[in-house]
Amino acid sequence: MVSVDTLPRTRRGVRGARWREARIALLFVLPCLLLFLAFRFGPAVAGSVLAFTDYTIGADTNWVGMENLRRLSEDPLFWRALRTTLTIAVLAVPLSILSSLGMALLVRRAFRGSKLFRSIFFLPVITSLVLAGIVFTWIFSESGPWSSVMGWFGLPDQSWLSDTTLVIPAIVVVAVWSRFGFGMLILLARLQDIPRELEEAALADGAGAWHRFRYIILPELYPALFFLGIIETTFTFQIFDTVYVMTGGGPANSSYVLVYQLYDQAFRYFDFGYASAIGLALFVMTFIVAMIQRMTLGRER
């Protein structure tokens, strides 16, 4: 017979066991956590503090308060870089997610060679962006294949990289190319989790391919899509390598992005305080976008 006071004791026992488990788990993640604090969180905080100083190499550092942020707000180049970065993000993020989704659906079912395709599609992700940038510079060059293909369709066949408008889509193409494999992998993992019975039941009920996708697969994918949305936005906001290699921010600053400005200020002009202010602005922006995505996409879930 169960005595009156055994119940709470058992509960306490459960709680104790949970706490023990939590402690062990914490012990396991501790090395990672420490590394994260030391090499990610620490520098991020330090960088934010730098944004309020005039830090540069070899000189005394002074607290300048909001001066860097005021300068930023009056810097036409910053606003231009911000606009360019946002344009690239608005084009690249949806395109990248759509291509990821398309590719994931294509290689979802096991068929002869499906593993090979999955690997091939993932290759761009692990390819150095600098190398890819050099190859794409040639592809988009005046005498490169892209210009020739454009010429066949009667479209402008000059180098996209030397046109102030077309340079953006060119960079977006490379950004999407380099990222869709990652998204594909994430979505593929989620797709494998969807019980086959669900789809089979729908099939038996006479649901077409589109309906099965719209009402069964897509809802299951929302969390993964939300995750991708944030990751891809963050990634695109930080785009630098491809721009650095392919255009140097040109022509005439038309592909000059925020991280490029940050790089210029820090490593070409040694104005680390101002560079940190740009970094801070970038962080705030990424944070706001993530919050908006969370409120919209997250709610649908």
């Binding site: 050099i134 510079t137 040639w138 060059s141 005046e142 000059q158 180098s159 990289l161 030397s162 255009t247 140097g248 040109g250 022509p251 005439a252």
Partner: peptide, 9 residues
């Protein structure tokens, strides 16, 4: 034009 704004190999 190739060198005007770009920096190809």
């Amino acid at each position: 034009e190739d060198l005007l704004t770009g920096n190809p190999p």
